[in-house]
Each structure stands twice: as structure tokens, then as C-alpha cells.
């Protein structure tokens, strides 16, 4: 009987998720230029071999697919920086929003608003602000500073990619943390006050441990999102300058679809590798959720 009710969902899941996934794995084991799977030649694990063909993994120039490794290193650096920044800013924002501010609802809306924007809109807005003749440089020039070509200087472009994606999503995570903060009973803080606890200690010994389940959820969500970063960055920098903001998803897109050096098999192999990383992170998240459920009801 249960199977009967599950069937429609399983059907959709099978058709739209499992089947394309299987086809993708099949693609990753074929070579050639033909677009249709049946016209392609089976090459086993050649594509994966090609991706991992490196003299020294730390020096991407020794790699056969140097752009793939560039994307891997860029994405890794991005994940570390962006996730730390995102979780940190979300936490601070949630702590601030938790206070009895005037017009609290207004401020919450302000922080959440960018989350509602489409990523292309976000990328475009910031491109107009940061480009050589953009709003920021205009402002700097008026104030007497030297304008900087933000999107064409390697480190600034990377920082912009991190900053813009944090700006676009931090409101969402701040809201999750805010919910967690509000779930902490006020009386605990009063008891701590009666105990003569300093604010720092209140944060580290009471707030943070009780917020930990939410923090972990936010951490894993941001990790998963960060690995897949594409939309805003593609519009903002197009992967440039050079390849300094080329991330995995863009690499896969270019190799698989956009570039004239189209190689669907290689793109599929790269996407499978990326998928494996995401599976690990997702399992991690599932573990956390289960642990929270078990702990639940304090």
C-alpha cells in the first residue's frame, strides 16, 4: 500500500534525477565529439585518467587539464573563504537582529532582501558597481582616492566574487541562526545574569553551545552551496581576470556546452567528481540532522 503512494514521487524522481544521473555517468565513460550518447565511443575511465593526469598536484601547470585543476584550486580557496565569511557574518547579523532594536522587522527585511534577488540580477548590479567606470570608482574618485579596476585585478576580483555571493545569501542563513537564537529560553540568560556571567562568557558558554545544531546546519548548507558557485560569479567576472575566478561549475559548463572545444565526456567526468564531493557533504548534513532529532526535546 505504501508503495502505491510512493510510486508517483519515485517515478518523477527516477525520470528527472536517477535517469539523468545514470546517463551522466555513462557520458563520463565515453569519448568523442558526438553529442548523442549512442554515437559516442566507450573509453572506460580514460576521461577520469585525463583529469587526474598531473605531474604535481600542487602545480596546476604540470597538469594535462590545467583548467580543471585551476577550477579545483579556485573553488577550494573560495569554499574556505566564503564559508567562513558567510557563517561569521550570518552569526553576527543574527546576534544583532536578536536584540530589541527599533524597527527590527525593517532591518530583518533589509538583510533578507538580497536573498530574493535572482543571481543574474545580483551579478549585474555588482558588476555595475565594481567595473572600471562603475559606481564604486566614481565614489572613490569624488572622494579623492585612486580608482581601482576591481574586476580586472586578480585578488580584488576574487574578493569581489566572495563578497558578492556572501551579500546575496547571508540574510537567509542569518534567519536560520536567528530562529535558533530565539529558541534559547530567555530565562537561561537571566539565570546567567544572576550568576554574574560576563557577556563574553555568556556567548561562549551558553549561546554558542545551544546554537551549535543550527550552526552546523548552516555550515553544511553553505559548504554545499559554495562548491556549486556559478551564477553570480559568471555574470560578475565571467571567470576572469584570466582564470582567477574560474570555478568548477563554470569549467564544466564551458567544457560540456559552451566552448568550441566541447567535450561532453570530460565535462561529465568532472561533474561526477564534483558530485562525489557533494554527496560526502550531504551525508554529513544528514548525520547532523539525525543527531539533532535524537537529541531533540531538551
Amino acid at each position: 500500500m505504501a508503495a502505491f503512494f510512493l510510486a508517483p514521487n519515485m517515478l518523477i524522481f527516477g525520470v528527472f534525477v536517477l535517469f539523468p544521473l545514470a546517463v551522466n555517468i555513462a557520458y563520463s565513460m565515453t569519448g568523442g565529439n558526438a553529442l548523442f550518447l549512442t554515437n559516442r565511443e566507450f573509453v572506460g575511465l580514460d576521461q577520469y585518467e585525463r583529469l587526474f593526469d598531473c605531474g604535481n598536484y600542487l602545480d596546476r601547470q604540470t597538469c594535462r587539464e590545467d583548467l580543471f585543476w585551476t577550477a579545483v584550486w579556485n573553488t577550494s580557496a573560495f569554499v574556505v573563504l566564503q564559508v567562513s565569511l558567510m557563517v561569521g557574518v550570518a552569526l553576527v547579523t543574527a546576534l544583532v537582529l536578536n536584540r530589541d532594536l527599533k524597527a527590527r522587522s525593517f532591518w530583518r527585511a533589509v538583510f533578507f532582501f538580497p536573498v530574493l534577488l535572482s543571481p543574474v540580477v545580483v551579478g549585474l548590479i555588482w558588476r555595475w558597481i565594481l567595473q572600471r567606470q562603475g559606481l564604486l570608482n566614481f565614489g572613490l574618485y569624488e572622494l579623492g582616492f585612486e580608482p581601482v579596476n576591481w574586476l580586472v585585478e586578480r585578488n580584488w576580483a576574487f574578493a569581489a566574487a566572495v563578497g558578492v555571493s556572501v551579500w546575496a545569501h547571508v540574510g537567509f542563513y542569518a534567519l536560520i541562526l536567528l530562529a535558533g537564537l530565539q529558541a534559547i529560553p530567555k530565562e537561561l540568560y537571566e539565570a546567567a545574569e544572576m550568576d554574574g556571567t560576563k557577556p563574553g562568557r555568556v556567548f561562549w558558554r551558553i549561546t554558542l553551545p545551544l546554537l551549535m545544531p543550527n550552526l552546523l546546519v548552516v555550515l553544511v548548507l553553505t559548504l554545499i552551496r559554495a562548491v556549486q558557485i556559478f551564477d553570480e560569479v559568471y555574470v560578475l567576472t565571467g571567470g576572469g581576470p584570466g582564470t582567477s575566478t574560474l570555478f568548477l561549475t563554470q569549467y564544466i559548463y564551458e567544457v560540456g556546452f559552451a566552448s568550441h572545444l566541447r567535450n561532453p565526456g570530460l565535462a561529465s567526468a568532472a561533474s561526477i567528481l564534483m558530485g562525489l564531493v557533494l554527496i560526502v557533504l550531504t551525508l554529513f548534513q544528514l548525520g547532523i540532522v539525525r543527531r539533532n532529532d535524537r537529541r531533540g526535546g531538551k
Binding site: E187, A191, K298
Partner: peptide, 9 residues
């Protein structure tokens, strides 16, 4: 406190 306000963790 009425709800005891013990630190649950």
C-alpha cells in the same frame, strides 16, 4: 526560576 532555567548542555 519557574522553569528552573538549567543550562541544558
Amino acid at each position: 526560576f519557574q522553569s528552573y532555567a538549567l543550562y541544558p548542555h
